[in-house]
Design a protein around this nucleic acid. Structure first.
Lengths: 121, 121
DNA sequence: CTGTTACTTAATCATATGCTTAACTATCAG
DNA sequence: CTGATAGTTAAGCATATGATTAAGTAACAG
């Protein structure tokens, strides 16, 4: 029986959450361990409500979970979503590395007009 | 006003480009080799101008480059940007896996108030 | 009970995104 | 030249994003 403890992560909201430097910096902080909202907000040059909105984006992407503890909210990294994003990129990377061979073979039988292509990899 | 020179490769536009399924599908297609705009648009349920806009987002992220050939535009994958995004995720992943050990050790003694040892970063 | 701390919600605003249709340009075939 | 092909630009529009300030709520401290 194949049951998912967590739903399969949609990549759109994961990559969207990663597309902002403030959110990536929050994630980097959470890699060191759980943190409260205030601790996440401390190094960021924006208001607390703005940080809350970023946190919601991170939670929507499944990258972070949080729970209330007294009057503070403790946020924790959820590695599965980050892993899913990394896996997608890793699969494409493997694929284009394979494609490099096909491209090289293709260039061998085709008079290339101008411009370098595969040498900088 | 401080004038920052170009920081390292900018991840915001890379992850932003990856945050849309249509764009990821274009990238997946380009992993198989170069393609024209029309070929990229063929499987996508949207108009050609919409595909052009997605292509611009991919180029802004440095994930794709393109050149005009006759009346067609040929698009090519630029693996460096994809690698930069994958590397960022990979580094966080390694860091988080290291943090797991620290968390486990932390839970074992449980009486530690605070204090991230800066030595292991 | 009162006040401070730590969020939380609401309202607002400017800009960005993602799509459309219509019109335009530049090859290439005949 | 004529017309088809492949792309490009422009304009418009609905929604999303990222930020703000102001006001509200829920612990805890005294």
């Amino acid at each position: 029986m194949l049951n998912y403890q967590t739903p399969p992560p949609r990549l759109d909201p994961v990559f969207h959450a990663l597309s902002d430097g403030a959110r990536r910096s929050m994630l980097a902080r959470l890699c060191e361990g759980p943190a409260t909202v205030g601790e996440l907000a401390l190094p960021l040059p924006m208001s607390l409500p703005a940080v809350l909105q970023h946190l919601k984006v991170l939670e929507a992407g499944g990258l972070v979970s949080s729970r209330k503890e007294g009057r503070t909210r403790v946020c924790t990294l959820e590695p599965a979503a980050l892993a899913a994003a990394g896996d997608w990129i890793g699969q494409r990377r493997a694929f284009w590395e394979g494609a490099l061979h096909r491209l090289r073979a293709h260039l061998d039988e085709d008079a290339r007009p101008a411009g370098p292509s595969a040498e900088e990899i």
